[in-house]
Design a protein around this nucleic acid. Structure first.
Lengths: 337, 337
DNA sequence: CCCAGTCATGAAAACATTTGCATTACTATT
DNA sequence: AATAGTAATGCAAATGTTTTCATGACTGGG
């Protein structure tokens, strides 16, 4: 059975009007007489007609899509961000075109191109660190672009996010103020991940803010509970144990806590553990994790608003800083003497 | 500065060829002389031309997008699925149009319509339970549609996933075989969530498979560590405690484990805990969680393959069952006598 | 040097819409 | 009943591509 295509012409014929009227009935309903509109609606339903956005798009009408390119979806933190961004974006009628590049800036560039081929109305990237090709591409096309997650005053494009340096700094001063001098930093690989790098820098500066010069043992760990668990197990097997384990994000901190639980090392009495992010679950961990809250939901929501504004009013957006916040819970305590 | 639009015509003029040749140079490069191709490429680069998929799409050419509609993104389980589906789909050149409906079947219908307006080449939904409107819509349009996550022989559309009834059944027989007779079932709300409902049914049947008639206390809990933690805390405060807490998914099981840790109740000596899903982190939890693995990554990958096949060969796909697998770890043990 | 065959390119129609302008059909005012 | 004004609709051009068909430019064999 050949499927008879249901285009606007078929609808027009069925409703005994011209295609123009059908189009108007969709886009400017007030311009068409209620009775004909009803006739058209009936025809639409009978034929199962569905509007073709592609055909609209080539008229300069917006495509109704926003491109979102993330390093990875399968991480608590980005999942939360994507969710809130998507929810907020939905509300303004847009749909998200999603892609992930696995921390490869080259793939990110390719994906950006692809998004532009799809004529997304706006495009959002994670972090501030991108290939110069990508920046040039975005500058050349005049598609609104937004950087999510990070905040920096001098960002090359409008950004909505938190200052990761500050997040690290908050942890640093907290840990230093508790008297810890021998510290392990468990961080994800810094390559292609400006967030992690900035957090680490902030951490180092924060730890020294009180004038001390603590010993910092840095340890790169892939993003996973399993890897962090193993890394911390090894760390604690070393002759001289750190009194605080500062993790680049909450997932790594969870791994650390599990490792310590297994080793029977008491937290926070024997060792302090901190995360960054305040993911779902950190609050209810046992013991509850001391961390820095990066307001992912707020970032997603505000970013969506900003994006919508950029698209509809065509104006350049202001940078927006959502400050990180130290959340002291049960995994941090003064260094044992 | 007015941005001079870079369409295929502008490129053609700049390269001193006809638009046809430019188009060919993209789509059938072997049909155009290398020297002119080079000239075109130069013009493309100089003008910053980017192909317009919308314009291609109205020629019946594929849009290169696949719609993915999920209940929610911000859950370990779906994040993993989306990631693997997206990765596999990327490889075949498609991009994902993503939307979430928050377990509302009505919103799902609306989103499906929207995806069809965007002329996605295929569309994937989670689970088997959908509004009849949605099924009718999909049947009427001839867009390939696929149901992810669940498997059932008699699914109304091709499906790729696991049999959730079996997953629950595996847990049930495992727990029953350990001699537990007083069991608490901590499950997410069943409304609009056929996965949970089927798991629960399988669980109940599995528990009874040995002929016993165990006492099952069912407890509905929103999907979150916090809620599960609280629910289990209340559960254990009751006069007669269950000896096994069977959770509808791993996140709830994490909450249960945290609650028990807080109460100082030893797992698995005093109480057995099980999950379903085997999410990232369950293996490395302390103690490691006994659960049923739903092969999310495999499902995503195979689903993407199936989808690609449906799109390119236009054929109906076979249902594909990826069996769940019981993973016995450290949180389950014989019931205390 | 002609002819057949191939290679490379161009012209124009087609795709599914939207929209500016023109036209027709009303309604109300005189 | 004529006129002006407005409401409703249709016509046709335009949007950015792809593709079929036609044409022109070579190439090599006789």
């Amino acid at each position: 059975m050949t499927v008879k295509k249901a285009d606007i012409l078929a609808v027009a014929k069925a409703a005994r009007v011209s295609p123009s009227t059908v189009s108007r009935s969709f886009n400017h309903p007030d311009l068409v007489k209620p009775s004909t509109r009803k006739r058209i609606d009936r025809a639409v339903r009978r034929l199962g007609y569905i509007r073709n956005r592609a055909a609209q798009t080539i008229h300069g009408i917006r495509s109704g899509t926003i491109g979102l390119i993330v390093p990875t979806i399968d991480q608590a933190i980005f999942a939360e961000l994507i969710q809130s961004f998507s929810d907020a974006v939905e509300q303004t009628g847009f749909t998200i075109l999603l892609a992930s590049h696995g921390y490869s800036l080259d793939r990110e560039y390719a994906l950006t191109r692809k998004m532009l081929e799809h004529r997304v109305d706006g495009i959002a990237l994670i972090g501030l660190d991108h290939a110069t090709d990508t920046y040039e591409l975005l500058a050349q096309q005049n598609t609104p672009a937004l950087l999510l997650w990070n905040y920096a005053e001098d960002a090359p494009l409008p950004c909505v996010g938190s200052d990761n340096y500050r997040a690290g700094h908050l942890v640093g001063t907290h840990v230093a103020s508790l008297g810890h001098r021998h510290i392990a930093a468990v961080f994800p690989p810094l390559h292609g991940n400006d967030r992690a790098a900035q957090r680490l820098q902030g951490l180092a500066d924060g730890l020294r803010v009180n004038g001390g010069d603590p010993e910092i043992l840095q340890r790169e760990t892939p993003y996973s509970v399993a890897d962090a668990k193993q890394a911390v197990a090894e760390l604690m097997a070393a002759p001289r144990r750190p009194t605080a384990i500062v993790c680049g994000n909450d997932v790594l901190a969870w791994g650390a806590l599990h490792a310590l639980a297994r080793l029977g090392i008491s937290v926070p009495d024997q060792v302090t553990v901190t995360g960054i992010g305040d993911f779902h679950g950190s609050q209810d961990f046992e013991p509850a994790l001391t961390t820095v809250r990066i307001p992912a939901r707020a970032i997603g929501a505000r970013a969506a608003e900003t994006m919508a504004a950029m698209i509809t009013t065509d104006g350049m957006a202001e940078n927006l800083a959502l400050p990180p916040e130290l959340i002291v819970r049960a995994t941090s305590a003064p260094a044992p003497s």
